[in-house]
């Protein structure tokens, strides 16, 4: 399995939680902290497990997530 990395721009996140529902690994949860907009932003709990599938970014309505992936 290729390794990947989901990079969440926490200041663009509006805390809608949609990304948390689509990650096949269940790796995204909401931070207890608030961002500049006053939202609990999404964070990746374990980057090591990310496969770079991009589903979180596909679902994010605020284009707050970028995804990198190791070449197979």
């Amino acid at each position: 399995m290729a390794r990947g990395r989901a990079i969440i721009d926490e200041d663009r996140c509006k805390g809608c939680e949609l990304c948390t529902t689509v990650c096949p690994q269940g790796l995204i949860r909401m931070s207890r902290q608030l961002n500049a907009l006053g939202f609990h932003f999404a964070v990746v709990t374990d980057q090591e497990e990310c496969r770079g599938c991009t589903l979180c970014a596909v679902m994010c309505p605020d284009v707050a997530i970028e995804v990198e992936k190791e070449r197979e």
Binding site: R3, P61, E68
Partner: peptide, 21 residues
Amino acid sequence: MEKVFTRPKSMTDKPMHFCPG
């Protein structure tokens, strides 16, 4: 690592005003 998902070029950097979700 290769970038496989990023903001499209024809989109501006401005945060969108739509409600959360």
